[in-house]
Design a protein around this nucleic acid. Sequence first.
DNA 1: GATGAATGAGGGTTCATTCAT
DNA 2: GATGAATGAACCCTCATTCAT
Lengths: 206, 206, 206, 206
Amino acid sequence: MDLSDKQIQILEIAEKLFAEHGFDATSVRQIAKEADINIAMISYYFGSKEKLLETLLEYRNFDFRKEIAQIIEDTNLDHLHKIDTMIALLTQRIHSKRRIHKILHFEYSNGCRNINIDKHIQRKLKSYTLIEKFIKEGQSIGVFSKNVEIPLIVPTIIGSYFNFYYNKKMFMIIYHLKEEDIDDFVYNTLTNHIQKTIKALLTYEN
Amino acid sequence: MDLSDKQIQILEIAEKLFAEHGFDATSVRQIAKEADINIAMISYYFGSKEKLLETLLEYRNFDFRKEIAQIIEDTNLDHLHKIDTMIALLTQRIHSKRRIHKILHFEYSNGCRNINIDKHIQRKLKSYTLIEKFIKEGQSIGVFSKNVEIPLIVPTIIGSYFNFYYNKKMFMIIYHLKEEDIDDFVYNTLTNHIQKTIKALLTYEN
Amino acid sequence: MDLSDKQIQILEIAEKLFAEHGFDATSVRQIAKEADINIAMISYYFGSKEKLLETLLEYRNFDFRKEIAQIIEDTNLDHLHKIDTMIALLTQRIHSKRRIHKILHFEYSNGCRNINIDKHIQRKLKSYTLIEKFIKEGQSIGVFSKNVEIPLIVPTIIGSYFNFYYNKKMFMIIYHLKEEDIDDFVYNTLTNHIQKTIKALLTYEN
Amino acid sequence: MDLSDKQIQILEIAEKLFAEHGFDATSVRQIAKEADINIAMISYYFGSKEKLLETLLEYRNFDFRKEIAQIIEDTNLDHLHKIDTMIALLTQRIHSKRRIHKILHFEYSNGCRNINIDKHIQRKLKSYTLIEKFIKEGQSIGVFSKNVEIPLIVPTIIGSYFNFYYNKKMFMIIYHLKEEDIDDFVYNTLTNHIQKTIKALLTYEN
DNA sequence: GATGAATGAGGGTTCATTCAT
DNA sequence: GATGAATGAACCCTCATTCAT
């Protein structure tokens, strides 16, 4: 991953445009124009438009494992606080990288692109293993309810965020939010809601 | 909405292709070929590719209000069972129309298309009002916890589904599922998880 | 081979340009411009630039077998006159189709194009068989010398023509020819020379 | 003609690629890559791609005059043996430089390149003068037939070779040759054929 | 002298759409 | 009402060349 400043600039502009208009609706001309570079540079730097996307995904390495591991290993926090901290972390990270996640959802969820999704799956699986272990530990010491579908917890966390994000315009009406209020809302109200939801689920007995 | 059989056939093929490859990556030639009609017919019938999408969204009018209202008004069910029934209904409906929802997420969430999203927002808002009223009623009679961010409940339901769906490949590994097992999994395990989550949230006191 | 008038017009313009500037140096835009058609028509009609070339070669099916067979079977001509007639025919045909032959030499002789040369080879081989049979017959009745490398006779005929053609400019100086004299020169002086050469070879005893 | 080793290496690689794929289909990138030099070096060394071709043609100075003159002046050989020797020389030289000749045929025979062909014509004319003088001498002493189109003799020699070469694949089938047999075939069978042809022509009386 | 980044032009192809029939 | 030929714009990419270092 040796990327020059110019390359990084291109990647960030491409990320923005891909997220806004989709991969196909974004032309290399558009990227080149916004990045104020010659159109040929994109092929020169990245080989092709598709490889640019691959490079972008590699560049935005969204691997939260280390941070999650740190939280899990933190002896100062009890299990429920670890859940809070983890969710706050996830929400924050995903919100800041929401654009690249959207591209992933969009371009990857159907297997039509010639892009290798396997390593992403592998990376995610490792995060799941970490979280699963943590939850099971909590179950074994009686802090968490045993009757929980552990692998589906993360989709509930991340899905809550994204469904909010994909319906942002509606929620801006409901909550009387302006564009610049969104960050605060995510970090406070939405994060709180998700934290509460997961903690409720993990302590729910029926 | 006067649509001939041929038009409906085109819409359904377009829906499949848009969901699989995205709007931009699907060419009218492809649609025409799969529908076994002349290319010119698409412009002829729908005016343009964009208008075809609009017609498609209008055709797939996914308005659950009536059914939700029915459930809410059902005097045979207590509040918690109404939650279960509603979630089962939502999951089922969204799963069966996941393709069109995916198109909405990706083509609509960014305001770049010349497509009017307002009526969709209005329709969704009405559903929210219905659900909000039901939850508040439950709170007033002490069945539901008062400390809940009501508008964010629906994103948690639908988001859980979609984040599962967008990461389908990973969950197929985790749960050892084949493609043909997906429907059952959604209608059972995933639905149960979401039901439990929302019920936990609505009865959570801290 | 169902070709519209427009398609034939394109083929003939392409033939001219390919022969003049080579396949690679001729752009589809140039062809489209000279043929006064839209650039997209070339892909529409032929699929691609390479397929246009293939269609051209198929269209210009230069199969002399029938005429050669007629000459061979002509009972009014003795063997030496048949040689004369055959060479006159070959020279005439090749001269009139020199452009397509040049393309063949150029684009085919190196195996780099994704074009199937096999059927051309097969067709040529059949012509050779015909001529070979005729020469051997002449040898058996004592008209032709037996000490002749039969397969190399045709290269001497056609090669003489083409080496003249490829050095046309020099011969225009030597013979004080103008462009408009070339046809006559080919049909008379050059044809005579080749006829004499082959007859000399076929009757040469040493 | 001061050429460094690197320049000569570039020229030889360019010659190979031009002959294999044609001038236009060969990119400077390809040449630079195979020669393991920087792309910019080609413009730096030769000025441009076209000038590289000119330099190549100049470098491959295929002027047989001296050797032909030597043969003609050789008092140990009679006229017919001089013909044999000359043809053997021409065949050998042309075969070893067939690639550059091919380039000449195709890039030069049409006047579209901005390349000066005049000096090549001049050089060839001088060779012709030499051969013409020799033939006329033979005619005057009665060794050669007078009824011969002298300027067309050389095209028959060289044309025979090239038409064989451009149809190499067919002759490999006819003669059951492998690629590695070609050289021997050219130096023996083909050379013999051409020698016999020209001697027959020059002694043919009708 | 030599390099690799950068340029602008042009390559072939495919797009959604329209028009004449 | 329905077709297939035709359009012009835009697509991504690669070209030979140049420039700053």
